[in-house]
């Protein structure tokens, strides 16, 4: 099995509106895949459908060869997820959410060591809601890594992080990739995408504009770099 994630012909409609239309993608094991698009392009809906938290209207989805809606118990032992909104019970402290998340997995990592690495050790007894944006984001990534997953989903990876914290996150992801973990991310930062992603897919209003490696997409768009390419693609000079 060469691919960690396989999506074919995914369509999701809400009443009369089509959020995602006929999306197909394949993510090679051990690679980093970026899903790009403007706000409201359908990125979150796509992630929801892939993870089985929303039922696709059409299409077939496999993660690690499993159906995410049927084999979820087994699948999510090996798949870690960080959603855009950090969703925790109000008032919960860092230590408590770490302990709870740690207890969910058969083969969890040493979270105290990771917390130390992320520079969050001194925040153990602080409520999650009182962390700074960057700290919370790092915590969410740590929680997504907790089960030592083979595949990790990160929605809006470094939104709200300062440049230093972003570099930290990047190197964490590179380390994960070196360990053979497959990473699926969405991001609004094109430098990040250029730096990290092996392959990307650009969505506009639920439609796939193009997919391929970063150089391929840049060449196709005629842009100078990924930032330029993204703007050219989304502004629709290619229709």
């Amino acid at each position: 099995m060469k691919y960690a994630i396989e999506v074919s012909g995914l369509t999701k409609t809400f009443g009369a509106t089509t959020a995602v239309q006929h999306l197909s993608l394949r993510v090679k094991k051990g690679s980093i895949f970026g899903l790009l698009g403007h706000n409201g392009a359908g990125k979150s809906t796509t992630i929801d459908c892939i993870l089985g938290t929303q039922k696709p209207s059409q299409g077939a989805i496999k993660i690690l060869g499993m159906d995410p809606s049927k084999d979820r118990k087994q699948l999510f032992q090996n798949v870690g997820v960080q959603f855009q909104e950090s969703a925790f019970q109000k008032g919960l402290k860092v230590k408590e959410i770490c302990e709870i998340t740690h207890s969910l997995y058969k083969n969890p990592l040493d979270w105290k060591e990771k917390l130390e690495m992320f520079g969050l050790s001194h925040r153990l007894k602080v409520k999650v809601s009182e962390l700074s944006g960057g700290e919370r984001q790092k915590l969410c990534i740590l929680l997504a890594m907790m089960g030592q997953p083979d595949v990790i989903f990160l929605d809006e990876l470094t939104t709200g992080l300062d440049p230093l914290a972003r570099r930290e996150v990047w190197s964490t992801l590179q380390n994960l990739k070196d360990l053979g973990v497959t990473i699926f991310l969405t991001s609004h930062f094109m430098d990040e995408v250029e730096n990290l992603c092996d392959e990307i897919l650009v969505l506009k209003n639920g439609q796939t504009l193009i997919s391929g490696t970063v150089p391929e997409v840049i060449a196709y768009s005629g842009g100078k770099n990924m930032d330029d390419a993204f703007i050219k693609l989304i502004e629709g000079e290619f229709e």
């Binding site: 089985g52 959603f83 089960g147 989903f153």
Partner: peptide, 10 residues
């Protein structure tokens, strides 16, 4: 979305 978050765990 706390409940939703638990849907993507074991």
């Amino acid at each position: 979305k706390v409940l939703k978050r638990y849907k993507v765990t074991p």
